[in-house]
């Protein structure tokens, strides 16, 4: 694939104006001190709307991004040449059909720590860290967000309009938008599908910003 035949998206994890540093102490607008130790997310079903309004979904576009491994944070997608991309959309997480398809491999292998063993289903995204506000063992907070059965289908779509004429794009995941909206004293352990997971899924969606 030639470089000009692909569109690349780099995901960057931010708090405030800086890239996240693992283990560093941050403070939310609710005055919770916290540190983040890991963040992983599935991004899938990348879809381009071309200028001529043709919509093309990239087949098998399932990616697991581990923000602590920089080589996983850039996704390269094939585009048809001579056609400008008007909009890009993708989903955060794994759709229902894929969740019930049984044993899959590659990025969708159930052995990557992003699959619940006790109840079938992918973890769409995960954020783990610590906060003295969380009265849990070792002050840990754990968000393992997923769910493929309505009404708790925790798959969220993000759409952006890429700047014309360039192939390298940046999507910033601004975690303030999530952590400033919750109290880590009350919300610190969500590891099953359900209403609380849906709330967090929607907050996570607000974190995604295209950076021209």
């Amino acid at each position: 694939m030639h470089a000009q035949d692909s569109l690349r998206i780099r995901f960057q994890l931010f708090l405030g104006n800086e890239p996240i540093e693992w283990g560093k102490k941050y403070i939310t607008s609710n005055a919770d001190t916290f540190a983040i130790n890991s963040c992983k997310a599935y991004f899938s079903k990348f879809t381009f709307t071309y200028q001529n309004n043709k919509i093309v979904q990239i087949p098998n576009s399932y990616y697991l991004v581990d923000f602590s491994e920089p080589n996983t944070t850039e996704i390269s997608l094939p585009i048809s040449t001579n056609k400008a991309v008007k909009a890009v959309s993708f989903t955060i997480g794994i759709d229902s059909a894929t969740n019930t398809a049984g044993l899959l491999s590659g990025a969708l292998s159930p052995m990557l720590g992003m699959y619940w063993s006790w109840q079938s289903g992918y973890i769409n995204w995960k954020i783990e860290g610590t906060s003295p506000s969380a009265k849990t063992r070792k002050n840990a907070f754990q968000f393992h967000i997923g769910g493929y059965l309505p009404p708790n289908l925790a798959v969220i779509t993000v759409t952006f309009e890429p700047q014309k004429g360039i192939n390298n794009h940046v999507v910033r995941v601004q975690l303030d938008e999530l952590f400033n909206q919750i109290s880590l004293k009350e919300t610190n352990t969500i590891m099953i599908p359900g209403k609380p997971a849906m709330v967090l899924a929607n907050l996570f969606q607000n974190c995604f910003h295209y950076k021209p």
Partner: peptide
């Protein structure tokens, strides 16, 4: 019905 496919079922007892 918490397990939706036979191929992923053994993960449950092995990790439980």
């Amino acid at each position: 019905g918490s397990i939706n496919h036979l191929d992923v079922l053994p993960l449950a007892p092995i990790e439980h």
